[in-house]
């Protein structure tokens, strides 16, 4: 990891950034209708994969903007960084 490529600022030191957990989690559209179990799953349950992980980071000591990172949790190697709202990249060469 060490160097992270911010989609807005370019390559910066890892210490400028903070990770905020799994990305692409959508809030349920019908909060009053779903069950306690579904709420629990939305709030607390996470993929936590050993391998490719999609996660949100902020560039705290830079542009202060949020973006997404595709990273391998075994090697800590960053595969790709991309802006919020962009589609989730495909996982290749499994």
């Amino acid at each position: 990891m060490f160097i992270i490529n911010c989609p807005y600022c370019g390559e910066r030191d890892q210490t400028e950034f903070t990770c905020h957990g799994e990305a692409h989690i959508a809030r349920p559209d019908n909060p009053s209708e779903i069950s306690d179990e579904e709420w629990g799953r939305y709030l607390f349950f996470r993929e936590n994969p050993k391998g490719t992980h999609f996660e949100r980071w902020t560039h705290d000591h830079g542009c202060r903007r949020w973006f997404n990172v595709m990273r391998d949790t075994v090697t800590d190697q960053i595969i790709k960084t991309y802006k919020m709202g962009e589609a989730k990249p495909e996982i290749s060469n499994e």
Binding site: M1, F2, Q14, T18, C19, H20, G21, N48, K50, H53, E55, R71, T73, V74, T75, D76
Partner: peptide
């Protein structure tokens, strides 16, 4: 603060 299975902490 980030998920990892690397058994290495950040420097």
């Amino acid at each position: 603060a980030y998920n990892s299975y690397s058994q290495r902490g950040s420097f």
